[in-house]
Design a protein around this nucleic acid. Structure first.
Length: 749
DNA sequence: GGTCATTGTTATGGT
DNA sequence: AACAATGACC
């Protein structure tokens, strides 16, 4: 355990006594280090037993990171440590105490897409046909109520006049209760109610946990805050770490007020600020600081660094989204040529759809890349199908799972048959499984056959190991045959095999029965034991860790992700793309101040991911929903202090649709017949090829030094032979056009 | 009554 | 561009 490695503020936080504390930890200030050190210090100094610590992280990945850091600092058996996300921890408690809470032991967790399909099913089943509301609207309403701890009966009718959404909430709640389905916010709400209504259980946890450590506190919602209030006993100290400037999950109920509220009611006087940044160079921090100053009501902190200023931030304007992507390719190529590892480069974007164009450019240029959070393994349709069969094994009455796979692969059960069946089930108040034998006609026979298929799976589930059962299910259901039948579907079959592998790994790791929760507590009144089966554990894990990227991570690939997904990560070189009004800030957010401030925090998060070099790029035209738009530059670019920025324009000759030509750029002619190819333009611009003059190779985008004008970046290379010129954007002297044969231009680095 | 092909629609972020 | 809804054909 090495305290010497910590700075003064960090050390103070790590070695705080047993009191509540709020650590305001700026980006790159060693937040994770402080949390892991705090945990290790508590253990190392024998102040606390491992089973008396509760650590809450934002993602499962962060939990693993924390564990590995702790293990490096103290040599200790970490079984018995309660660590995980709010959802994971609540889930564990619900499994432990399923007897106390009117919930079947086989209860299933549904993720957002399951939730949407369930909502659609309820809409159909109840003949709700008001077009004013879409499934997403219901989903949003329900989740936001739950995230505030509000059940249907708790809704204040007088305050909430939207009877329509409210009635639906009731229908949804009833359905979930009777079918043992638990959505994400329900995990928290149920656990909250468990603690609230059971004095014994609450007291048990109050006494058990001496220390609660919470990471990313700025992204907790109201219900999570209330949950912490309940689980923390009189002797418990709550150590919360967060950064109000990095709160970017308001859409999911995160309440930034939790921080100031916590400061006032818990951490009176014990607020520690971590402001020294170890991640980024001065220009990057300066940009971040100057931007975030535009937000109001901040708790306040200013990052500083002992490192130098570093490179200015390169802001690059391209003619189109496609031009942006190809500029990106060239820039990344240049970096890799200089010896930068591809995995040190991150490309960030505001919304997932932006990745398409970028991926296309990278792919056709043979630059390896990994997309994070794009295609999640457990959200692939073939995996979802297989999971639906597995869910029916546990709970044959799961109508939603039933409907998903009753005719997949196709087995002669059409819409009319299903409508019939739904009608029969409804009028007899039975599940689809229980009424399967009562459907008439040819379709009815097929329904009965499907029901016996499920029966067969259930019987075999008692005989087979988890991986065997999954393999059996995939074969017996016909999924395997279906995906084998077509070459185009081969990938999907591979994913199903991957699912079996995942189950094998899962079984070996025995996550389900070696979790710390299995240890018995000293307090005999409440036994912390999870009674569960591998299948239940596997399905829960699939829902809760849906974001896990099962595909092999290529270590030498460029990292592509949304800004949200980049939170907590850092990269030597970061590209922020699409810095345009309507996209970043997103148009759905600009009508309200709070929305705009969150977008600004999002940009702040994006900027502070960069260690050495930051690019921010924008396009003057962008294809959106099949139409070309001409956005203006993001207001955030104007808010960043100009002295940290170096502006330039990309070559911009890749195009496949018209774009406004930029002010002093070439006139671009485009060719509609060719897609994404370099278009010959009648203009003396050689954009990416580079020019060799006096044995020096000049490239667009290159940093250069000039005896009189100082530092700048080459924006254009003009001409060939003896009359070659470079248009250079100088940091201090602006745009100059220089003859390369005469001007004393030195290439930096 | 079931399946396949076409048309129409619509789009932040994700434990 | 991805997905749901609709219509033509088996």
């Amino acid at each position: 355990m090495i305290l010497e490695e910590l700075n003064k503020a960090q050390k103070e936080a790590v070695t705080l006594g047993a009191s509540h504390a709020l650590v305001l930890a700026g980006a790159g200030s060693g937040k994770t280090k402080v949390l892991a050190s705090r945990l290790s210090w508590l253990l190392d100094t024998n102040q606390t037993a491992i089973s008396s610590i509760l650590a809450v992280t934002f993602t499962n990945k962060a939990a693993r990171e924390m564990i590995s850091r702790v293990l490096k600092m103290v040599n200790i058996d970490i079984r018995g440590l309660w660590i995980g996300t709010f959802h994971g921890l609540c889930h564990r408690m619900l499994r432990i105490h399923s007897n106390e809470i009117n919930l079947s032991k086989n209860f299933q967790i549904i993720d957002i897409s399951d939730q949407i399909s369930l909502i659609k099913q309820i809409i159909k089943g109840n003949n709700i046909n008001d077009l004013k509301y879409q499934p997403k609207d219901f989903q949003r309403f329900i989740n936001s109520q739950k995230e505030n701890g509000v059940r249907f009966i708790d809704v204040d009718i007088n305050r909430n006049h939207n009877r329509y959404l409210l009635d639906f909430y009731k229908l949804y709640e009833d359905y979930c209760f009777t079918h043992d389905l638990v959505d994400f916010s329900e995990l928290l709400l149920r656990c909250y109610e468990l603690l609230k209504n059971n004095d014994d259980i609450r007291r048990h946890y109050n006494d058990k946990f001496a220390h609660i450590l919470i990471d990313e506190f700025q992204d907790t919602n109201k219900l999570q805050y209330k949950w912490i209030n309940l689980i923390a006993g009189k002797q418990t100290s709550v150590f919360a770490v967060g950064d109000d400037d990095q709160s970017i999950y308001a859409f999911r109920g995160a309440d930034i007020d939790n921080m100031s509220s916590f400061e006032k009611t818990y951490a009176k006087g014990s607020v520690i600020r971590l402001e020294q940044n170890y991640r980024s160079f001065g220009n990057i921090l300066g940009a971040a600081n100057s931007l975030i100053k535009y937000n109001k009501g901040r708790l306040g902190k200013t990052l500083w660094t002992e490192q130098g200023k570093g490179d200015p931030i390169r802001v690059v304007e391209s003619s189109s989204d496609i031009a942006e992507a190809y500029w990106l390719v060239e820039e990344i190529r240049g970096l890799i040529r200089k010896g930068v590892s591809a995995s040190d480069i991150a490309v960030l974007y505001r919304s997932n759809m932006q990745s398409r164009v970028i991926e296309h450019a990278l792919f056709s240029s043979n630059i390896p890349y990994t997309v994070y959070g794009g295609l999640r393994f457990f959200e692939r349709q073939e995996v979802k199908h297989a999971l639906a069969y597995l869910r029916l094994i546990l709970n044959p009455n799961d109508d939603n799972a039933w409907l998903r796979v009753v005719n997949f692969p196709p087995r002669g059960i059409g819409i009319r048959t299903i409508e019939n069946h739904l009608e029969i089930a409804k009028s007899n108040n039975l599940s689809l499984m229980d009424s399967a034998k009562h459907v008439s006609g040819r379709g009815g026979v097929n329904i009965s056959l499907f029901a016996s298929l499920i029966d067969d799976l259930i019987i075999n589930s008692n005989k087979l190991t988890l991986p065997e059962l999954i393999e059996y299910t995939i074969d017996r259901s016909g999924l395997s045959l279906y995906y084998k039948s077509d070459k185009d579907l081969y990938d999907r079959l591979e994913n199903l095999k991957e699912l079996i592998t995942a189950a094998t790994v899962f079984s070996i790791e025995e996550k389900y029965d070696s979790t710390p929760a299995c240890s018995f507590s000293v307090n005999a009144q409440v036994e912390e034991e999870i009674i569960t089966t591998p299948l239940i554990a596997f399905l829960s894990n699939a829902s809760l860790e849906a974001s896990e990227n099962i595909s092999v991570n290529n270590n030498s690939s460029v990292q592509l992700m949304t800004v949200h997904a980049s939170k907590g990560l850092e990269f030597r070189i970061v590209f922020i793309t699409g810095a345009e009004e309507g996209l970043f800030p997103h148009e759905n957010s600009i009508s309200e101040d709070s929305g705009l401030e969150e977008e600004r925090r999002l940009m702040y998060v994006a900027i502070t991911r960069a260690e050495e070099r930051l690019y921010i790029s924008m396009a003057n035209s962008r294809m959106l929903r099949g139409q070309v738009r001409y956005p203006s530059r993001s207001r955030f670019l104007n808010e960043i202090d100009a002295n940290h920025i170096q502006w330039s324009k990309s070559g911009g000759v890749y195009d496949n649709y018209p774009s406004r030509s930029f002010k002093d750029g070439p006139n671009i002619s485009y060719n509609k017949s060719s897609k994404n190819t370099l278009i010959n333009i009648d203009c003396n611009v050689s954009s990416n090829k580079g020019l060799i003059v006096n044995d020096k190779l000049f490239l667009v985008g290159q940093s250069v030094n000039h005896g009189r004008f100082g530092e700048g970046v080459i924006v254009r290379l003009i001409g060939s032979g003896n009359s070659t010129q470079a248009q250079v954007n100088f940091q201090k002297h602006g745009m100059k056009t220089l003859a390369l044969s005469v001007a004393k231009l030195d290439i930096k680095e």
